[in-house]
Amino acid sequence: GFTTGAPIAMIVANKEADSSDYEAIKDLPRPGHTDYPARVKYGGFNDYRGGGRFSGRVTVALIMAGALAKKILITFNVNVMAYTKAIGKVKMDQALSYGEIRNQRYKTSVRCPDSVCAKAMEEAIINARKDGDSLGGIIECLALGVPAGVGEPLFDALDADIAKVLMLVPAVKGVEFGTGFAAAELKGSENNDAYQIKNGKVVALTNNAGGVLGGLSSGMPIVARVAIKPTSSIAKEQRTVNLSQMKNAKIKVGGRHDPCVVPKAVPVVEAVVTITLADHMIRAGIIPKVLE
């Protein structure tokens, strides 16, 4: 099929919606959720059933848009892929090739390309669920084939825009590129990415910058990582307040909740980075506004 130039519309029907569990706790803000600040912002008219517009359910639209953007980027030999790097204290240390990451990440339930590490992650999630608790983790996203010079200085810097869309993904609490926060412990001679000519092209010997310098793509793979917080809805009893009575209270969140949302967030992270790269490459004139 071909696009016509008109807006593309896609609809996903949630046939298993059950908001009955939220009625009993509508005046009890859930710790870790947006219930309280949303109630203040919207004067009590916020949708308390599952978090409303702040729910992770909104990300389905991002994934749909990302699927369209991915088709465009692939045409220009740009490939974006995200995978689970860590869940809780279980971290993937094995170095895998880009091909191995791409081919193996969806062969495990936790979206980790290292099968041995994936099993340990699965066990950690099971144990957290048994304890009535939850886990967070780290997702790494790679963008291969992005040409140098993509991005707009200062307010529309490429890494700034990528960081912004990553932070809009529910549960994301931190973003880093390349060496990230570890760069603070390095010397300039250790952190700088030296250049060389290889096959007639300028390439960097390392990629501590994560593929972005001064808000512009460097021509190296873009490497971004996000920290995902533990799922806020847990079976353990927690302290909160009753907003209608203005008294201290306790809450135990029921319903259907994942003990770890990291695996589900992998395609969302991939989608928002894909959308942002497609947008910037169109602005740069690399991708024409009309594809023939």
Score class of each variant (00 low, 15 high):
residue 47 D to W: 02
residue 152 E to I: 15
residue 253 V to D: 10
residue 266 V to S: 03
residue 183 A to K: 14
residue 82 A to Q: 08
residue 195 Y to H: 09
residue 161 D to I: 01
residue 26 K to Q: 15
residue 273 V to F: 08
residue 153 P to C: 03
residue 260 C to H: 06
residue 68 L to N: 01
residue 39 R to Q: 13
residue 98 Y to L: 00
residue 258 D to G: 10
residue 88 G to I: 07
residue 90 V to A: 04
residue 95 A to C: 03
residue 188 G to A: 09
residue 286 I to F: 04
residue 56 G to P: 12
residue 160 A to G: 15
residue 170 P to C: 11
residue 174 G to E: 11
residue 28 L to D: 00
residue 223 V to E: 04
residue 55 S to E: 08
residue 270 E to I: 06
residue 40 V to I: 15
residue 46 N to C: 04
residue 23 E to T: 06
residue 109 S to P: 00
residue 44 G to M: 07
residue 121 M to F: 06
residue 264 K to M: 14
residue 97 S to V: 06
residue 246 M to A: 07
residue 140 E to V: 01
residue 154 L to G: 00
residue 189 S to W: 06
residue 94 Q to P: 04
residue 257 H to E: 02
residue 94 Q to F: 00
residue 187 K to A: 07
residue 200 G to C: 10
residue 88 G to K: 05
residue 182 A to F: 10
residue 264 K to N: 11
residue 230 P to V: 07
residue 232 S to V: 03
residue 221 P to M: 03
residue 114 D to W: 14
residue 72 I to V: 15
residue 15 K to L: 13
residue 87 I to W: 05
residue 229 K to G: 06
residue 31 P to T: 01
residue 180 G to D: 05
residue 115 S to Q: 08
residue 159 D to T: 01
residue 245 Q to E: 14
residue 93 D to T: 15
residue 261 V to L: 15
residue 238 Q to P: 00
residue 256 R to T: 13
residue 85 K to I: 04
residue 249 A to K: 07
residue 169 V to H: 05
residue 129 R to T: 09
residue 281 M to W: 07
residue 204 A to H: 15
residue 108 T to F: 05
residue 63 I to R: 15
residue 83 Y to E: 02
residue 10 M to Y: 00
residue 111 R to K: 10
residue 1 G to E: 03
residue 258 D to R: 13
residue 241 V to H: 04
residue 262 V to F: 14
residue 57 R to A: 12
residue 169 V to M: 07
residue 206 T to A: 13
residue 276 T to D: 05
residue 89 K to G: 10
residue 120 A to I: 00
residue 175 V to R: 08
residue 144 L to H: 09
residue 280 H to T: 07
residue 73 L to Q: 12
residue 20 S to Y: 10
residue 92 M to K: 12
residue 201 K to Y: 09
residue 58 V to A: 13
residue 31 P to F: 09
residue 242 N to L: 01
residue 281 M to V: 02
residue 123 E to V: 14
residue 46 N to S: 11
residue 225 R to M: 13
residue 163 A to D: 02
residue 221 P to Q: 03
residue 204 A to G: 05
residue 207 N to V: 12
residue 274 T to C: 04
residue 13 A to T: 13
residue 209 A to V: 08
residue 157 A to G: 11
residue 68 L to S: 10
residue 227 A to H: 11
residue 206 T to E: 14
residue 135 L to F: 10
residue 272 V to N: 12
residue 261 V to W: 04
residue 277 L to D: 04
residue 59 T to R: 01
residue 161 D to L: 06
residue 191 N to L: 13
residue 214 G to S: 08
residue 224 A to C: 15
residue 69 A to D: 02
residue 222 I to A: 05
residue 29 P to S: 05
residue 199 N to Q: 12
residue 28 L to N: 02
residue 106 Y to V: 03
residue 218 S to A: 12
residue 92 M to H: 03
residue 153 P to R: 06
residue 229 K to V: 13
residue 284 A to Y: 08
residue 196 Q to V: 02
residue 205 L to V: 14
residue 176 E to R: 06
residue 42 Y to T: 04
residue 42 Y to P: 12
residue 109 S to H: 07
residue 27 D to V: 01
residue 283 R to V: 10
residue 82 A to C: 02
residue 166 L to Y: 07
residue 147 P to V: 12
residue 267 P to F: 10
residue 230 P to A: 08
residue 39 R to A: 08
residue 160 A to P: 11
residue 215 G to Q: 00
residue 86 A to H: 02
residue 266 V to M: 03
residue 6 A to P: 00
